[in-house]
């Protein structure tokens, strides 16, 4: 796989849900294949909207979105899902589907019209579950799983789509201290093993420094900073765009960490 080819390219992207109230105000971004990008920004900065456009849910944008060299607007619904798998923040199930059946739904984008999942698809599900650690609860209903387990299953379902790009919308927001680490660590390893392009929105600058190789900072619908996390994130940026006074320090291993001390 050619690693310098852009996986995603956004040119002058504008979007608004209600006219005169733009949510995205001219986003330019190019992400290379295999890059691990974190998107940092306050609630309402436009992160979720950006992800919805990337995964083909929000139409009616202005500008150009290109996925693996193809214009998004020219792609079919299933074609987009073969290219981009989005892991939602949370899924509240109505029917108590078995975890196996739930992950299997990730295979939908690869089915023909009269297709229904076969043994090949079931094998893909088993593999995805094994890679994410969801294998032990394949035969339990998804609705009976804990929050951390549900997140692993959602990631497994995204893997079953066999896409090149993995997008995660706040993957660890609802999780406990251990699972927050576990999920991000898993996602990073998966992206490396499968050479997937990774885009995730995160809220904790320390997570960004630890798990991403590039950070894109969004503020009020614009990208205000872009680069290596340790170079981009500093006390001034956190004060200006996040309204927080934080102090930078080095931990015992010599890594940069931030500690919030006061809301501005």
């Amino acid at each position: 796989m050619e690693l310098n080819r852009p996986a995603i390219s956004l040119e002058d992207l504008h979007f608004s849900y209600i006219s005169d109230q733009p949510v995205l105000k001219g986003i330019n971004l190019s992400v290379k294949v295999g890059e691990k990008v974190a998107v940092l920004g306050r609630n309402g900065a436009g992160k979720t909207t950006l992800f919805s456009i990337l995964s083909g849910i929000n139409h009616g944008y202005q500008g150009k979105v290109t996925l693996a060299g193809r214009e998004l607007k020219q792609m079919s619904r299933a074609g987009i899902s073969q290219q981009v798998a989005l892991v939602p923040q949370k899924h509240e199930p109505l029917f108590p589907y078995l975890t196996r059946d739930f992950i299997l739904m990730g295979r939908f984008c690869s089915m023909g019209l009269f297709g229904s999942p076969g043994s090949e698809d079931l094998k893909i599900v088993e593999e995805a579950a094994a890679e994410t650690g969801a294998a032990p609860f394949l035969d339990r209903p998804y609705s009976t799983l804990s929050g951390g387990e549900m997140q692993l299953v959602l990631i497994a379902r995204a893997l079953a789509q066999q896409s090149e790009i993995l997008v995660l919308d706040e993957p660890n927001t609802h999780l406990d201290y251990r699972n927050r680490f576990l999920v991000l660590d898993l996602v990073r390893k998966l992206a490396e093993a499968r050479q997937m392009t990774l885009i995730m929105s995160l809220h904790d600058p320390n997570d960004v420094i630890q798990f991403a190789e590039r950070v894109v900072v969004m503020h009020e619908g614009r990208i205000v900073a872009d680069g290596r996390p340790v170079e981009v994130i500093d006390e001034a940026l956190l004060a200006e765009y996040f309204g927080i006074r934080a102090v930078a320090m080095k931990n015992a291993a010599g890594n940069l960490i931030f500690k919030a001390v006061e809301a501005l």
Binding site: S55, G56, I57, R77, A78, G79, I80, S81, Q82, A85, L86, P88, H91, P93, L94, F95, Y97, D101, M105, G106, F108, C109, F114, S116, P117, Q161
Partner: peptide, 22 residues
């Protein structure tokens, strides 16, 4: 014939679209 598609449809509009359904 298409009963499996109802599983995906039953997840809700947004999720079904994410999985590639029209």
């Amino acid at each position: 014939i298409f009963s499996w598609y109802l599983n995906i449809l039953s997840l809700g509009d947004r999720e079904a679209m994410l999985l590639g359904m029209n």
